[in-house]
Design a protein around this nucleic acid. Structure first.
Lengths: 349, 349
DNA sequence: CGTTAGCACTCAACTATACAGAGTGCTAAC
DNA sequence: GTTAGCACTCTGTATAGTTGAGTGCTAACG
């Protein structure tokens, strides 16, 4: 038997142990694995292999006479090299789309429903990182004078993502001036995000010889105020009840307490998710890899969604480390595809 | 000793039992109460009174040889007739205002922070029912044609509460027509809420002889679409971690599960809160009085806040029935006053 | 009649002990 | 490299005994 065969067998056994542990939540013994392998190996041999896996840091023994439990490294190796990725069939995709019932909804409502559906589907908590205008590309800007010194600045990223802010201005502005200013911004800055638009205008402010200096200055002033209270992105979390119902949190309910507390501090999690989503594709973080106090017992699976080609947000599932990674991965992936499709179709018409 | 004296003594003892139970979370015995009363009565007498209180339905005995625990009715009687209402001093109010740090915030962010502060302060979950434009009074409506068949409808309730929606229209509309239509709506309908505005327009549609029939029809068409995806109100919940950390939920963690699950169904709770806030003033609901499955072990204290004279939303605290009602009541009341003041001051300038 | 001391009684909660069973590591044989 | 066999370890559970907080009742007292 060559090395590769041995390794494959080891992987197989690690997979069986993890998959059993995921459903039972209690240590897995050699006898059980031997039975699963239909006696192609005896429990004694399995035990030898389990010792190897423990030495490799993939398994852990709670106490001498107990079965084995996967470690963070074990899960990591499993998702990277062992589990076979499942994919949703077209029928399941259709069902998922149906769950969203995208009639008469704006983007926020669609995403909220997507979170709820994903949570229901996976029986874990689901989260959505929702886009706001700030990081979207400028489609159109409208300036409407409300009174002599107050102007309404409307930022349009697409049909369904609009933000409006009233801005106080120093010098009065006529309706025509406002129209001209808006046209200036629209034509000059198409294709940038609102955030980048600000940067670009700031740079032009510094290059004082710009022939549109005055227009630039006014635009910048108004946009800065308009965007100042606009968040970069928002986070919805749905279905935490499923997570606290898991045995790891029921046994020790202070874990549930700290978990919920950590989630109330959205900013930290958002930063982490932002990074993961930036990489693109499905990302999984397991236990300590999340590097957030209170989430040591958890894992998440997340992937970005897009409008057209632009990655604008992300969806994911959060649960105990002991989660059904293949299933959850396929659900998250499918949901992101589904959202991307709907948003893109929407954007199109 | 006359009847009133006896009743007062009974109340006093009920109060002591509840206040002890609130901090210890375990049944209260006669000995403890006697000690608290500095031996003005013996434990035997207390026991007799406790039997009365139990027969009145205010107390319950988990088992023969245990102390007493308050019932829902007991808490109700306590908050109605026994507890002395505390109020926040001016110093505490000032501190609360400081916690909100109302600089560079829009209404939503202010309210979210208010929820967080209230949760921190009471060490329970806090919620905010936040206003949306839909139920606010119309301050101004702007219509901006974006293209031949698409019009941007901006609904302004006040500086910080604005909603914008793109509406597809059947017949093309010029810029001047849009301006005229907006002016029509603004002058005719000032003082109504956006919801009522719709109703009013609908009524005028039916009275076909209205001289502005055409304007009414167009307005209605546009506003209906603009408001169709706008929710009536939103609910923020902050700090559920404090609640699940309470012993009643730690002992039986399926209670925590069902509690969180019930809260995910926002609509039901919102309806109930809407009713309570409509009454005005501080409202308290205890246990089953909430009439929501999953919240039997909880109570909430809620009170509306206003902009000027208009009640536009509410804040409250949700926790286990075993909560410090006087303290929480004063915090909720103070926070609502604080929010009202800030929003009203804001509106003014 | 309200109050109180005294006392027997009850029941949850804790402790100690024994025991069954699941699972391991090791050894010797194949 | 694999396996049967076996002694060993440790948890979880069941059982019984003990403790102690708290009650209800009764009889006596002012």
């Amino acid at each position: 038997m060559n090395v590769s065969d041995l390794e494959q067998r080891r992987n197989k056994i690690l997979g069986l142990i993890i998959e059993a542990y995921v459903v039972t939540a209690s240590p897995v013994g050699s006898e059980y694995v031997a039975k699963k392998l239909r006696s192609s190996l005896s429990s004694a041999t399995i035990r030898n292999i389990m010792v190897d896996l423990e030495e490799a840091g993939f398994l852990h023994q709670p106490h001498t006479s107990a079965g084995r439990v996967p470690t963070d490294r074990g899960y990591r190796y499993y998702v990277d090299a062992v589990m076979d990725p499942r994919h949703l069939g077209p029928e399941q995709m259709r069902q998922m789309e149906l769950m969203l019932q995208p009639t008469e909804l704006d983007v926020d409502q669609l995403l909220e429903r997507a979170g709820a559906a994903l949570s229901e589907l996976t029986q874990q908590a689901a989260f959505v990182v929702a886009p706001t205008v700030k990081q979207s590309t400028v489609k159109q800007i409208e300036l409407v004078p409300l009174s002599v010194r107050r102007i309404l600045c409307v930022l349009i990223a697409n049909e369904e993502m609009i933000a409006s802010h009233v801005v106080e201005i120093q010098e009065p502005m006529t309706k025509d001036e406002a129209t001209a200013l808006a046209r200036f911004i629209n034509t000059e800055m198409a294709g940038l995000s609102f955030g980048d638009l600000l940067d670009s205008l700031e740079r032009r402010m510094l290059a004082q010889n710009d022939s549109f200096y005055h227009l630039v200055k006014r635009s910048l002033n108004i946009l800065q105020h308009a965007l100042s209270t606009e968040p970069n992105e928002r986070l919805f979390v749905e279905g935490m009840n499923y997570v606290v119902a898991q045995p790891e949190f029921r046994r020790d309910s202070r874990k549930a307490h700290t978990l919920l507390k950590s989630l109330d501090e959205e900013h930290e999690l958002l930063a982490r998710l932002h990074h993961d989503l930036g990489v693109g594709g499905v990302r999984m973080r397991i236990g300590r890899e999340i590097q957030m106090p209170g989430l040591e017992e958890c894992s998440y699976v997340t992937t970005p969604f897009a409008i057209g080609e632009d990655m604008v947000g992300g969806v994911g599932v959060l649960g105990p480390k002991r989660m059904d990674y293949p299933h959850i991965r396929s659900c998250v992936e499918g949901m992101a595809r589904c959202i991307t499709e709907l948003l893109t179709r929407w954007e199109g018409n």
